[in-house]
C-alpha cells in the first residue's frame, strides 16, 4: 500500500502551483495501486499556503511552521522531511521539480537511505512494483526505471501531471512538531534578490514569451519580449545566449540548465533553437517561432513558424493583438 508524502513548495508564503501537480502524481499512483497521500508544508507563517492544499484529496496537510524554517535551508528542511517520512511510514516522498526540491530532496533521501529519481514524467504499476519514466541526457533519452527499497524519493515534472480536481471536503491540517534545537546551523541565509516584475513565473504560466540572440540589448528585450508578454498576460523567458551576454538575468533562462517548462503556448522570438534550449520547452503544446534565419533549428519543432525580423514582426504582433 502506498503511503505518499508530497512536499509542498511556496515562495515567501505563496503556494507554488506545481505542488498540486505533485499531488496529481500521488493521486495517479494511489488510483492505480492503492494508498493515500499527505502534503508536508514547511516554513514560517505558512497557514495561508496550507489552506491552498486542503482541496486536493490529501489524507492530511501536515504543516511544520516555525521561525527556524523561515528560509528553505537544505540541512534543516531535509531533516524535518526525513523525520516526518519516517514517522508517517512513507513509502514515497515526492516533490515537483524546482531548484527548491533539487536542493533539498536528495539530502532527505540520503538521510532515509532511499534511492531517488529526478525528473519523473510517468509512473505505471507493474507486478506490484512501480515503474517510472524519467528524462536524461538533456531530454534526448527517456529511461524506464525501478527503485529498490522500502522508501523511494522522486522529483516529478509538474507539466507531466495534472493537479487533482478540487474536492468538496477539506483535508485536515495537522501541525508537525519541530524541535528547533535539533536543527543544524551549517548555513545562514543572508539575502535574496527578488525580481518584482509583476509577471507570472515561467513554471506556472499558460503562455511564455521567450527571447534569444536576435535581441541586442536589455532595453530591446524588455520592449519586445516583455511588451508582448504583457499584452498576453504571459511570463517571460530567455535563451542561455542572452543570459551569458548579460542581457537577461539567469532566473529567466529556459533550457537544460535553466527552467523546464511546458505551457500551452510558447513564443520563441529570435531563438535559433540550440539543443540545450529546446530541452527546456519542447513539451509545450503550441510553439511559435519568429526568426529571420529560415534555417534555424527552432523551425523544426515549431507548430507555426514565421520567417521575419523580430524587430519588425513583434511590434506588429503586439499592436494587432491589442486591438
Amino acid at each position: 500500500m502506498n503511503r505518499i508524502l508530497v512536499i509542498a513548495e511556496h515562495d515567501q508564503g505563496k503556494l507554488k502551483l506545481a505542488s498540486l501537480s505533485a499531488a496529481g502524481f500521488a493521486q495517479k499512483v494511489c488510483a492505480a495501486s492503492g494508498g493515500s497521500f499527505d502534503f508536508l508544508l514547511l516554513g514560517s507563517g505558512v497557514s495561508a499556503a496550507a489552506e491552498g492544499l486542503r482541496k486536493s484529496g490529501a489524507a492530511a496537510v501536515l504543516v511544520a511552521d516555525t521561525p527556524a524554517l523561515a528560509q528553505p535551508l537544505a540541512d534543516r528542511y531535509a531533516k524535518v522531511i526525513a523525520d516526518t517520512a519516517k514517522a508517517r511510514g512513507a513509502s514515497l516522498v515526492v516533490a515537483a521539480v524546482s531548484t527548491f526540491s533539487k536542493d533539498i530532496l536528495p539530502r532527505a533521501s540520503a538521510l532515509l537511505d532511499a534511492g531517488m529519481l529526478s525528473d519523473v514524467i510517468d509512473v505505471r504499476p507493474a507486478d506490484g512494483e512501480l515503474t517510472f519514466r524519467r528524462v536524461m541526457f538533456a531530454g534526448n533519452v527517456i529511461a524506464t526505471v525501478q527503485l529498490d527499497g522500502a522508501v523511494k524519493c522522486l522529483t516529478v515534472r509538474s507539466a507531466a501531471f495534472a493537479a487533482p480536481a478540487a474536492t468538496d471536503t477539506l483535508s485536515p491540517v495537522e501541525a508537525v512538531a519541530v524541535d528547533a534545537a535539533s536543527l543544524s546551523q551549517f548555513t545562514k541565509f543572508i539575502s535574496r534578490e527578488t525580481k518584482a516584475s509583476g509577471r507570472p513565473d515561467a513554471t506556472e504560466a499558460r503562455i511564455i514569451v521567450s527571447g534569444g540572440r536576435a535581441l541586442k540589448t536589455s532595453e530591446d528585450f524588455e520592449r519586445l519580449v516583455g511588451g508582448l508578454a504583457d499584452v498576453l498576460g504571459a511570463a517571460v523567458g530567455s535563451s542561455r545566449a542572452l543570459v551569458d551576454s548579460g542581457i537577461t538575468p539567469n532566473s529567466l533562462q529556459i533550457g537544460q540548465t535553466g527552467k523546464v517548462v511546458a505551457p500551452d503556448l510558447y513564443f520563441a522570438l529570435g531563438i535559433s533553437g540550440a539543443i540545450q534550449h529546446m530541452a527546456g520547452m519542447k513539451d509545450t503544446k503550441v510553439i511559435v517561432a519568429i526568426n529571420k534565419d529560415a534555417e534555424a533549428p527552432i523551425f523544426e519543432i515549431a507548430d507555426y513558424g514565421l520567417v521575419a525580423d523580430v524587430y519588425e514582426a513583434v511590434p506588429e504582433l503586439m499592436q494587432k493583438l491589442k486591438k
Binding site: 531548484t99 551549517f186 548555513t187 539575502s191 535574496r192 534578490e193 538575468p249 539567469n250 532566473s251 527552467k259
Partner: peptide, 13 residues
C-alpha cells in the same frame, strides 16, 4: 546561488 526565485546569498560553515 541560482534559484528559481533569483540569486540567493548564504554563508556556510
Amino acid at each position: 546561488r541560482e534559484t528559481d526565485a533569483g540569486i540567493e546569498t548564504v554563508t556556510v560553515a
